[in-house]
Design a binder for these strands. Structure first.
Length: 298
DNA sequence: ACCATTTGACCATG
DNA sequence: CATGGTCAAATGGT
């Protein structure tokens, strides 16, 4: 392997994913070479069962890497929200939101599998009438530092294993205004393409949902352009989808993480690691062929 | 000791 | 008055 260099302390977080990614790429190349051997062998003879076994082994290695990548990212995505709270400063007195209880206009609803990229502090939880699941209330951890008015509400959907996340207000805690906030965004921007492969639960892309200052959100901003203070909702799929993924016949109980990643849309591809159109669709940035509404106003 | 989360109470709205 | 959103003291983790 090529990764025997000393590790910088700052790389400890990102490196496991990078290592696994590169390991997977190496396995993919091995798999390609073996496929080439199989084809060459099959052209002249009946083929070697040992060779087929080797190809199967390579495929299993690939699957292991896929699963490892997905799990790595799942852990990272889960830790991120925890870190969000953990890294925030102390809470002080806060103001009641001006729009509290009062007529919110529209709301943008999106389907996504990623977390956002902000630091949130939970400030409340409420049982909602006629709803099976409680609603959780979060506000931006930088509300105190930057007066950031952004809040979000999370509630598990009653109809599917997703979470409805409704955002209120705009983030004013921009990168550069605060070291911690900048560090978060910087780290997300350093995510490799390979990480994106498995990281539709990743936080980086979703930041644009309610961060009109970032580059990608022009479309979203325009979609909810009536008023930037209007709330928007994101449906986030969680682990249960992954668990519903059927086992792969003939292989150990290792499951491709496609369900976890894209609601069953795609498995990793050796040649094209990033499906930007699918990513965009998953993010609700593009209209989908199936006509499913990915954005709506209420 | 500090800080984030929990949770009951309080407040605003319809 | 019912409901949802927020506050803030209590609690627990590090």
């Amino acid at each position: 392997m090529a990764h025997t260099m000393a590790l910088a302390a700052g790389e400890l977080n990102a490196l496991p994913t990078q290592l696994v990614t590169e390991g997977r790429e190496s396995a993919a190349r091995l798999h390609d070479l073996l496929i080439g051997c199989v084809q060459a062998t099959a052209a002249g003879s009946t083929g070697s069962s040992t060779l087929y076994d080797t190809v199967a082994l390579a495929e299993q290695i690939l699957l292991c890497f896929d699963c490892a990548l997905a799990k790595l990212h799942a852990v990272a995505a889960g830790a991120e929200e925890d870190d969000a709270a953990a890294r925030s400063g102390g809470e002080r007195k806060t103001e009641r939101r001006a729009s509290n209880g009062g007529g919110n206009g529209g709301r943008v609803q999106r389907k996504a599998t990623m977390d956002d990229n902000f630091l949130w502090r939970k400030y409340g939880q409420k049982e909602i009438k006629n709803s099976k699941y409680p609603r959780f209330y979060y506000r931006c951890s930088y509300k105190d530092d930057h007066g950031c008015p952004a809040t979000k509400q999370i509630q598990q959907s009653e109809t599917d294993p997703s979470f409805d996340i409704t955002y209120f207000g705009e983030h004013t805690c921009r990168p550069g205004n605060d070291d911690a906030a900048a560090a978060i965004v910087d780290s997300s921007e350093e995510l490799s393409a390979a990480q994106l492969v498995i990281s539709f639960a990743n936080s980086s892309g979703d930041a644009s949902v309610c961060w009109p200052c970032s580059g990608d959100d022009a479309r979203i901003k325009s979609d909810s352009s009536q008023d930037s203070s209007l709330p928007c909702t994101v449906n986030v799929y969680d682990e249960p989808i992954m668990e519903s993924t059927p086992p792969v016949p003939g292989l150990p109980d290792l499951k491709p993480m496609d369900g976890f990643l894209l609601d069953g849309e795609s498995l990793f591809d050796m040649d094209e690691l990033i499906y930007f159109h699918e990513l965009s669709a998953a993010l609700g940035l593009l209209d989908r062929d199936d006509g499913a509404p990915v954005q709506s106003y209420r």
